[in-house]
Design a protein around this nucleic acid. Sequence first.
DNA 1: GTCTATACGGGGATAGAC
DNA 2: GTCTATCCCCGTATAGAC
Lengths: 327, 327
Amino acid sequence: MGIIERKKRQKQALRERILDAARRIVVHEGFAALSMRKIAEAIEYSPATLYLHFASRDEIARALCAEGYAQLLATFVPLVGIADPAERLKALGRAYVAFGVAHPQTYRLIFMEDPSYTGAALGGAAGVSDAGQAGALTDQDAASAATDSVVDTTASATAAISADPAANFATVAPAEDPGAAAMHIMLAALEELRAAGRLPASMDATVWAEALWATLHGIVALNLTCPVFPTAPLDTLVGVALDAWLGVPEATPQQANRRTAPPRNVASAAGARKKKSAADRAAQASQLESPDEPENHPPTRPPHARSAEALPKKPLSAGAKRRSTTT
Amino acid sequence: MGIIERKKRQKQALRERILDAARRIVVHEGFAALSMRKIAEAIEYSPATLYLHFASRDEIARALCAEGYAQLLATFVPLVGIADPAERLKALGRAYVAFGVAHPQTYRLIFMEDPSYTGAALGGAAGVSDAGQAGALTDQDAASAATDSVVDTTASATAAISADPAANFATVAPAEDPGAAAMHIMLAALEELRAAGRLPASMDATVWAEALWATLHGIVALNLTCPVFPTAPLDTLVGVALDAWLGVPEATPQQANRRTAPPRNVASAAGARKKKSAADRAAQASQLESPDEPENHPPTRPPHARSAEALPKKPLSAGAKRRSTTT
DNA sequence: GTCTATACGGGGATAGAC
DNA sequence: GTCTATCCCCGTATAGAC
């Protein structure tokens, strides 16, 4: 059966070449610029060939979503070991926002584009058959070298959750659903806080987890889409939000079990506000974290100019690219 | 000069017919389904004619954005009169989320699609020359009847802000920038709360306003895009979030000036959680508010089936409509 | 001045030839 | 398995009809 195996491997390889090319286009030019023809040209195949590996452009997008979500989850792995649940949650929140700012195109694709895409990212491996073996979203030309790192980290993330002693009481996260895994990380931390009396006993952990996530998503989404708000630095916003939900870190210990929410003396650095520019956004990203690949800047650029291309200059509403002779 | 006047009026009328048709398509089929050819067919003109009134499809989109944002602002008008600033903010928050759920396509277009669109909605009349005279987004066939209601309510909204006695100390909202107007509404309420000692004196009102807005936007955006989260009812989420930011309403008055944040016994109705369905989303919308036009359902349907079409079945990635013979 | 007919380039997807 | 040719959709530029 060696011949069949080889054929299977070759098919696999082409499938991943397709995804690599697609990923590169999305990261550099935005999802709107992703076209079957462009992918085909990149891998030097006919457009029709793509349909032997993916049923549609949507399916390619969903495969990219699953990869991107795994990449996001991998970001959380080193943070689940933080002992203090509030600090853990805050670190996770900062990492989440940092990911969104560092990988705007991927974040948009996963969480802001289409419900079916978001579902593919969250709905477990069932939705996307290829979610497991996909390459990382690091978007470098050497994509083949890092091929299976993402699935590994995803698996270890789930393992880390149940391995963490503090998270024992959390229900076991189903390994096949990364969305549930991430949710369980939050739930565990929230319930630890409640058990320690640092959140009200009446709190519904699920509601709080979803609301907290929505808050972080709102910060990222607004930043990616709205040119004028927020004017405040991103980390300031994240800090205020996390403190609002979890209380400021140095809560006076003697009244901790009632969560009396001490005066929120957080982030009154109003002087930092200013009109946003692309450079500001990039600066905010590096304040929070400095991840691997700053998404979508053209191949080579002076470092300070990177941020100018970090956000899509134009959504490229199909068919308005080459023909601009007059305008 | 009567003839010139008449010509100008005719041009205006055609312009609004274009916008009406475009609005109808967006509301019913989603922004992705909006095409120049489809608009032209709807108004029974040649596609080229549209370009005599709008420079591009993007410009039509931006005009629709300005309208939609004005419609959203109009929703706030009756609420700025609420005396208690916390209650006012909560009412505004609920109205905001209710708008997003009731008009998903409009909300997506304004806040989730493209930075230039969002900028057109927020950036004041400067960005979009036609923002003033646009029709309401009520999406009924009788769009001509309600033509100038939106601009009126927008103007009165700005007026109401400065007219409200409690908001006197807020800097005067520049009338030409609806984004700034909305922001000033929030700022005024937050500063009232701080002046009353119900928020910490160190609070940066601008940061809080932006963070609060981001929270609400996150709730709406997640609901519109993510098929599995949030599982909690929307109004529960909004309640928890508003309480987290503003404290629960019945804060014990004797310690009010320190904002000691009494136990948050809010919304522990965990029993209400369930997997989301389109019907649930619609139910959540009506829980919060019952606005005029439930967006994007096909012309006539039994009422309970409306919600099934309330969210776009498919983003209609251009050119995948007619040709589906196999799939 | 208004408007249409026509054309170009690009897009998703498919049928059928090799 | 792969490609060529094709279909229909799209945004939009332009020439020329009225």
